[in-house]
Every structure is written in C-alpha cells, then in structure tokens.
Design a protein around this nucleic acid. Structure first.
Lengths: 190, 190
DNA sequence: GTCTATAGGGAGATAGAC
DNA sequence: GTCTATCTCCCTATAGAC
C-alpha cells in the first residue's frame, strides 16, 4: 500500500479511537487490528504515539477552522452561524458514541505531551475568538435576544455545548444534547 | 493502624486521584505512595480496583445527596438553591486542578465496571430530579427570569456546569468557570 | 493488617530480516 | 513498507510469611 494511504488510514482509525475511548483508551494493538497492519509497522509512519496524536490534532484543527471560515463566508446572520456551530458539535456525537476530538483531548490533557496540549490550547482560543466575533456581530444585527456580556456569552456557549456532549455520550442519547441546547436556541431568531 | 482509618485514607486518596487524573490515570503504586502502605496491602481493604472505585462513588453520592437535601431545608428561594448547587461544583474544581467526582467518572465511563456505571447513572438522574424540582419551584416563586421548558432548563444547567468544569480545568483557571456561569446567574434574582 | 516476592498480562518501542 | 521477535516497563492481583 502507498505510504500516504496507510498513513491516512492510521490517522482515521486513531481519530475515531480517541473520540470513542480517549487517547489512552486505545493501543497500537487496537489500531493494528482496525487498519490491518502489524503494530510494529505503525512506528514507521509515526515514531511514537505522541507523533500520531499530534498529527490527528493538527489535521482536525485545520479542517474545523476551514469549516468555520466557510460558514462566515456563506452565512450572513450571526444566529445562523451559531446554529451551524452547534450542529457541527451535534453531528460529532455520532448518535452518542463519540465526542468531538477537541473535547476528547481536553478531558484527557494530563497525559498528553506538551506539544499536543499547546495545539489544543491554541485551537480552543481560536474557537473562542470565532464565537466572540459572531456574538459581536449578533450585537449589531440583533439576531440573538437578551445579549449580555459578550465574553460571558462566548464562554457560556462553549461550556454548554461541551457539557452537552459529555452528558449525551454518557447517556448514549442525542436527545440529551438537544434538550440542553434548546434554551439557548430559543434566543436565536430565524 | 485501625482498619477503618486505613480504609478511609485509601478512599480519600483514591477520590482525589480520580478527580485529578481519572480512574485509569492512577495506579495502586500511586495510592501506595500517598497513603504510606504497600500496594499489595490495598487488596486487603479492596479486593479489586473496581471495589475501590465503586466505594468512592457510593460515598460521594450519599454525601452530595445529603447536601442537596439540606439546601432544600435551609433555603426557601429556588434561585438561592441553584446558586448553592453551582457553588458546590465551583469549589470542587480546587482552583482548576480537579473535577467533581461525578464528572470525572462520567467522562471515563467506558472502562468502568457495570456496577459503578449504574451508580453514576442513577446519581445523575437524582441530580436531574433535584434541579428539575427546583426549576418547578422557580416557576412558582418567580425567582428566575425568562423560564422556558423546565426539562430543557434542567439539562441545560447541568451541561453548562459540567462543561464549565472541563474548560476551567483545561485552562487551570477558575475565571473560565465564572465567566461561563455568569449569563445564567444574571437570570437569578437575589 | 501489613509485609516481600512474584505471577501474568498488556503497553509502547526497537532491531534486523525481507 | 511491513514483517517477526524481543525488550523494558508498569499495571493489577495473588501466595504466603510475620
């Protein structure tokens, strides 16, 4: 198999594993089974597990930030942009069996290498800024009711979405996510 | 040392470890160092790790449900009760280094034994009911503004508080918790 | 009750053949 | 690039002396 194909298969399998079981909840043996390659061979593509985890995070960050940029391009109203944000986190749940990669890494940060932790930290800041800018837009276009302090609204929405993911995965029930988000969604004018 | 004293020391050390590192983020060796007992001796008090984890959870559940009952006895206004609830989760953060036990177990549920998972699940339901009853009270005493659907409010507050814990611990910053909770707190009338 | 000693397994990682 | 074989380390758990 071509080097890049195996590498992608490993990244895909590892990302899925992290989102379902956490980064220390899967082993090279698990990965080996999923991809159909001996576990020693994984080290050819990623010398250590830290390299693998860092690569997953890098790829995820690039893709998601691109998605958010596209939302801004195509969606004029702030409330609609936030709805898109919420739906990204909703679909990441995969019916209640997985978390988005950012939440999965954030809850297991203690045993991560410094570099990956930095990447997550930087990523979280960028998400915060994107939301903050769109709450600022909402303050102008009036598409969200009862707006308070914009930094508080931003932190509150991130916490709400991440907490809803945790709860929904625990219960294996998407309904819990929707239930949690509804009070916020009712403030959005469509 | 008396049996019950060692047992309590083990429970205390294990609870702290779970809240800081997760239930598979600490070993009998870690516990052995903290308590000053050889790791083999731990098995005398708790035959397996599952027994230890289950005991921590049982103790925590009993204590917290007792606390919530006392809040109801001593605090007439719904908004004040919810403030107490929030402050329990806030102080559990220990400045951003730990989670409350319920969140710590909830995020690591995949590798828990069935019994402990059941205990957490049951505990979460009881927390939900306590909050739901107090949102119902708020609907009567008018101490929370803009009340929507009460189940949604309940799920939303749990998600908010749990997500705020995750974010605050990641950033090692209590401020993030306070920032996240402020929009909700502003709806409470004091 | 607590100890020493050790079993048994799984983790990530490396060497070297092909 | 992928393989087999092996290494080292750490985990939970048990046996048996004191």
């Amino acid at each position: 198999m071509k080097k890049s194909d195996t590498k992608k298969a490993l990244l895909d399998a590892a990302e899925e594993a992290v989102r379902e079981s956490g980064h220390d909840g899967f082993s090279y043996a698990d990965l080996s089974n999923k991809v159909g390659i001996r576990k020693a061979s994984i080290h050819y593509h990623f010398p250590g597990k830290a390299d693998l985890l860092s690569s997953i995070m890098q790829r995820y960050r690039e893709n998601l930030l691109k998605e958010l940029a596209i939302i801004n391009e195509n969606t004029p109203k702030a409330s609609d942009r936030l709805l898109s944000y919420i739906s990204i986190y909703r679909s990441a749940l995969k019916g209640g069996s997985a978390l988005c990669l950012c939440v999965a890494f954030s809850i297991g940060q203690q045993t991560l290498d410094e570099q990956t932790r930095e990447e997550i930290s930087d990523f979280r800041k960028k998400i915060f800024d994107w939301l903050y800018n769109n709450f600022t837009l909402a303050d102008k276009d009036g598409s969200i009711s009862n707006l308070g302090n914009l930094k508080e609204e931003t932190a509150g929405l991130i916490s709400l979405v991440e907490g809803a993911q945790i709860g929904a995965r625990f219960a294996h029930d998407m309904h819990y996510f929707d239930l949690s988000l509804n009070p916020f969604k009712k403030r959005l004018e469509n």
